[in-house]
Design a protein around this nucleic acid. Structure first.
Length: 522
DNA sequence: CTGGGGATGGGGCCC
DNA sequence: TGGGCCCCATCCCCA
């Protein structure tokens, strides 16, 4: 995909299909971006499985006799040291690095435990270490140029990141040494002097890469880290180094990476760099200064690529991936991912129910419980099934009703004119207005004219072009994706439910229901 | 199947 | 900028 296409997609309107947010490019016909959020996780997991079995391992690291089969590409991706050693750094013309044949790298200056932890981090994005081994891991991370791990260890050890002797930072401050002699670069990166052995060079080395495949038990170092995590201190992704790992979302599409130079920041999820950090546009040189990049909003989760809005919300989100629950109830021991959830939980123990019903003695733990409860008093059932017109007091109950195919009147009833919500299942407050002006059997062209008369552009509407609309709802479906939000705006404000997402989801649901109805008819 | 309570995760606002 | 607090949407569970 071209860079232009990527930029287009990054700002393109999106819709949801089968639970997947799909970006549509308005400018390029047929160009869509379909994200697979689990791909990176699965990829890493499979690579780790290959490492454990020695499959496809083309590099063996050794430390004091302990051998660790691994993959060059992974090590080059995670370690600045290996990246430069292999000539894999961006912009390198290659061919000058260590040869492609199976090799052994002796790293005796990194302790076996630290090397094991760093390898596990490389393949799992989780660092599992003993507190007592923190300094060794820090040392190894510095030597190998794994910046985020080094920073996390420094944070925990309470050290600053301004160590002038830090070989990683020192190396990163070398802006244009890629054309220099590889060995000299290597020394600049790290004082590690690996002993490279090639199978053709020594008989000893010829054994090494094959060992993992040929019956040698996997070294302790490549055992499942989860088994060790139970009794070890654990630094997980939710740690402070995520603040460096996140991907700032460029606010303007023209914010494209300008620094082709690898700055040394590890594990960047996407090549997008923040251009608004006040680095003076210096590109790689400034980025490589070792100064901590400050996070800004919105931020993209490096695991699921979800965009997280709000300052300081990314660490909170990351705990949903790591499972970290740092907030424990002192009364019952239940743990929570968030402090505010623990606070609400504590009301159970204190008996506090701060949300009293004004109409009855009932009191509630949560404001939304009170809100639900109040709908019982009022008798309001604003959420009506568009198919069977059964009304619900709660939106989630309507959703459950529709998802569960409990409605037996699929496609047999038309929406009542002038009453009830639209087929999106949205509450009445957002169902009427401009949308009601769309008569039955209106042509797309006529509908477009009407909508554009309200300032709603119809360009980019991908569906039903040239078709006649059997129902105005279908037109609404057609415009829901690209211009639905604009239509909402034209109608005078957004719905309290976030019309875009609601409409997109319901659009998808309706497709499924139409399919189901079609099958029934057959 | 529905009503209701509770849990979870995201966003907004504020400090 | 990070975190606290709150609200909201959604999901799960149980009666």
């Amino acid at each position: 995909m071209t860079q232009t296409a990527v930029q287009l997609l990054s700002t393109a309107p999106c819709f949801t299909m089968k639970g997947r947010t799909v970006a549509m490019s308005p400018g390029e016909d047929g160009l869509i971006g379909i994200p697979f959020p689990e791909h990176s996780n699965e990829l890493l997991s499979r690579l780790n499985a290959q490492r454990r079995t020695g499959l496809l391992c083309d590099l063996t690291l050794t430390s004091h006799g302990t051998r660790y089969p691994t993959h060059r590409s992974v090590m080059a991706a995670v370690s600045l040291y290996f990246r430069r050693l292999f000539g894999a750094e961006e912009g390198e013309d290659g061919g000058e690095g260590v040869g492609d044949s199976c090799s052994v790298c002796q790293l005796d200056c990194v302790s076996p435990d630290a090397l094991a932890a760093l390898l596990e981090f490389a393949y799992t994005a989780t660092l599992t270490i003993r507190s007592s081994g923190m300094r060794e891991v820090l040392k190894g991370a510095q030597l190998l140029g794994i910046q985020c791990v080094a920073d996390a260890c420094r944070d925990i050890l309470g050290e600053t990141g301004d160590d002038p002797m830090d070989p990683v930072k020192e190396a990163e401050q070398l802006p244009s040494r890629r054309k220099q002699d590889r060995c000299s670069v290597t020394r600049a990166v790290s004082p590690v002097r690996p002993v490279w052995r090639n199978p053709e060079d020594t008989p000893e080395c010829g054994l090494l890469p094959a060992q993992g495949r040929e019956g040698h038990p996997p070294p302790a170092a490549v055992q499942d880290g989860a088994t060790r995590a139970s009794h070890l201190g654990r630094i997980v992704n939710g740690g402070s180094h995520w603040s460096q790992e996140f991907t700032p979302i460029p606010h303007r599409p023209e914010d494209t990476p300008s620094d082709e130079e690898e700055s040394g920041a590890q594990g960047r999820a996407t090549p997008h760099h923040s251009q608004s950090q006040g680095d003076g546009g210096g590109g790689g040189a400034a980025a490589g200064s070792g100064r901590k990049r400050k996070s800004q909003t919105p931020q993209q989760c490096p695991v699921c690529q979800k965009i997280i809005h709000g300052a300081g919300k990314l660490p909170r989100h990351m705990r949903t991936h790591t499972g970290e629950k740092p907030f424990q109830c002192s009364a019952c021991g239940v743990r929570f991912t968030r402090n505010d959830k623990l606070k609400i939980h504590m009301r159970k123990h204190t008996g506090e129910r701060p949300y009293p019903c004004p109409s009855c003695p009932a009191r509630f733990l949560h404001s939304y419980d009170l809100k639900n409860h109040l709908s019982l008093h009022s008798g309001d059932r604003p959420f009506e099934c568009p198919l069977c017109h059964k009304a619900f007091a709660r939106e989630d109950h309507l959703q459950r009703h529709r998802k569960g195919h409990s409605c037996l009147e699929l496609r047999t009833h038309r929406r009542r004119r002038g009453t009830g919500p639209d087929p999106s299942g949205s509450p009445p407050s957002e169902s009427f207005g401009l949308r009601q002006q769309l008569p039955d059997h209106m042509s797309v062209a006529a509908a477009a004219q009407l909508l554009e008369g309200h300032g709603v552009p119809m360009q980019g509407v991908p569906l039903l072009t040239g078709a006649r609309m059997p129902f105005p709802e279908l037109l609404w479906r057609a415009v829901a994706g690209p211009v639905g939000q604009a239509l909402d705006k034209a109608e005078g404000g957004s719905s309290p439910h976030g019309s875009a997402s609601v409409t997109h989801r319901t659009w998808e649901e309706e497709d499924e229901e139409q399919e189901a109805a079609g099958e029934e008819e057959e």
